[in-house]
């Protein structure tokens, strides 16, 4: 990818950029920045389990964090995913 998102974001802004990039990767026509922070992205963007897997794979590629299946529900909203990634990355 030609984006300037750094590997392992070091602040909340970086995490948000990673999230938006990962979402637009699976739903190119979707405008991630206008998503409700608490909306389930699978519903809001109408993405299926394969696209959700691609989103999780993209998050892994951009942050180095492998999200296990049992944590999928934690990253299924923008706010949840931001909190989850901040915790895993040690970002306050």
């Amino acid at each position: 990818m030609s984006q300037s998102v750094p590997l392992r974001p070091s602040d909340r802004d970086g995490i948000r950029r990673v999230l938006i990039e990962s979402l637009s990767y699976v739903a190119p026509e979707a405008d991630g920045s206008s998503l409700q922070p608490t909306a389930d992205i699978r519903e809001a963007l109408d993405i299926d389990s394969m696209d959700f897997l691609r989103y999780v794979t993209k998050l892994h590629a951009l942050t180095g964090i492998d999200i296990p299946e049992r944590d999928y529900s934690s990253v299924s909203t923008l706010r949840g995913a931001e909190t989850y990634l901040a915790l895993r990355l040690g970002v306050t």
Partner: peptide
Amino acid sequence: LRDRNGERPVQRRLLPA
């Protein structure tokens, strides 16, 4: 599937489909 995916990185997980 849960046991199998549990020990695999995201790129190698299977979907129920």
